[in-house]
């Protein structure tokens, strides 16, 4: 009974999510499930997305291998934030699917946040990203940064290293 109820809410949320697109990050409708079921275990909201039109996001990082039972991800794009999603194992990383982010729109920054419970552990940002229905986005290990940054060392990007001049 519980699963049916949740799925109903998610489907309702999918249609409502596109209509209510606004700038600024908003929790998607599927995320509302946890608010509606306050007092229930948090994993209730973290259901896998199975929609055929969902976007798959692959995180190719050795540091995430085997973490699918430990971490959950949130994707942010075009001013919309997905609910926390459970991860699936890949041979060289993990993946998850989201179906509440705007697709087909203009390219934007895709932000992936990876949580251990409520604690943000990693963050990845990819500029000029375009999402398409049933498409996939690959984020490489070099873009996945451990957070919080303590400022003890400099960090470059996938394309640039930073060195102190002698």
């Amino acid at each position: 009974m519980r699963l049916i109820f949740i799925t109903t809410l998610i489907v309702a949320g999918l249609s409502a999510g596109c209509e209510k697109y606004q700038s600024g990050f908003k929790l998607s409708r599927s995320g509302d499930v946890s608010a509606a079921t306050a007092g229930q275990p948090s994993h209730v909201a973290n259901v896998p997305v199975t929609s055929a039109s969902a976007v798959e996001i692959q995180l190719l990082s050795s540091k995430l291998v085997g973490s699918e039972s430990k971490y959950k991800s949130v994707a942010k794009f075009g001013g919309v934030a997905s609910a926390k999603s459970i991860l699936s194992a890949l041979s060289s990383g993990v993946s998850f699917k989201v179906d509440t982010l705007p697709t087909g729109a203009k390219p934007d920054v895709l932000t992936i946040e990876i949580y251990d419970g409520d604690q943000l552990k990693f963050i990845a940002k990819q500029a000029n990203t375009k999402l398409s229905k049933a498409g996939s986005v690959v984020i490489n290990d070099c873009a996945i940064l451990q957070v919080p940054w303590d400022g003890a060392a400099s960090d470059g990007s996938c394309h640039w290293t930073i060195e102190e001049a002698k």
């Binding site: 940002k125 500029a127 000029n128 003890a152 060392a153 960090d155 990007s157 640039w160």
Partner: peptide
């Protein structure tokens, strides 16, 4: 010596 930087977003073509 304490000054460090981190790339928050690499927008491509060297724009950081």
């Amino acid at each position: 010596t304490s000054l460090k930087v981190r790339v928050d977003l690499d927008s491509g073509d060297g724009k950081l």
